[in-house]
Amino acid sequence: MISDNTISILLFVLQGLLVIAIAPLLSGWLKIVTCRCQNRSAASLFQPYFAFCKLLIKTPVMAENASWLFRFAPYFYAACLAVLAFVVPFFLYYGVLSPLFDVIVVAGIFALARISMALAAMDVGTAFGSLGARRELFIACLVEPVLLLVLLNLGLITKGLTLEHIGFVLIHKGILYPGLAFSLSAFVLVLLAENGRFPFDNPATHLELTMIHEAMILEYSGRYLALIEWGNSLKLTLFLLLFVNLFFPCGLAVQLSWGALLTGLITTLVKLFVLLTLLAIAESLQAKVRLFRIPEYLGLALFLALMGILLTQLMVTQVTGVPI
């Protein structure tokens, strides 16, 4: 276990700040690989940072009937996700706040971030805003049970609900649990749906028939839009980190030595970039589904998560040692 002293706390804070800092870098990489897959020439890896700076110096334009909620929501959205950046494991096997937050709170903060955006989108009263908000909540009500079931399945396997405990047990006992395969495939669908990635939403379009997330933030500009964009890439990063570090936790630093920390950082970065490349390839290979076929996919995710829990709970625990 990691001892409590100033250096370790500093390291933990540094880990959270690093997660926030590299989030746009990961979106940049995703865009580059997607462009390469589709035979287009790509922008620079640091393009999201440049876009952020450009948006910061622009004057934000407000809708006439925007209330305080509209102005307040981007800060709230980014703050919620920034808090979670201090919870998820990055190179250490847990974040500084994760002993305080169990997985239900994590799912709840994701929901809070989303609801703030949906409320802000409805606030100005444009047609697109409320359309996007309704679609977002439609997907959210299908995704959240699956996310909770997946995280609870991890909790059931490791007999503890904080990310710290789950990470610790999975690192020491291995990840080869039968229920985990089902949870993993459900989590992939959740990751895609939560971040508005391909079969569910196309993040690069402003076509009115299909857009979901883009419709909600259509009225924002200037520094508000910058915060939201940063928040979006942070959300993707958080889900990717949860994915790689809960289901493939090998290499994470368990004690504070420079070797372990460096190994943790490098393995996590490699895992993230490999996963993003796979995501980009998968996105290039498939088409977006119609809005009314989304419940089919998320229903599949729900039942996979449910089967994962069934396998965890009902399978006969076996005596280890002799091959079956």
Binding site: Y177, P178, A181, F182, L311, Q318, G321, V322, I324
Partner: peptide, 23 residues
């Protein structure tokens, strides 16, 4: 460990079966 791995393989086979039903 080896037991866990074998069980994990069977569970992925079951996963394939479930996905085949809904494909």
């Amino acid at each position: 460990m080896i037991n866990d791995w074998l069980l994990f393989l069977i569970s992925i086979m079951l996963l394939c079966g479930v996905l085949m039903v809904v494909g």
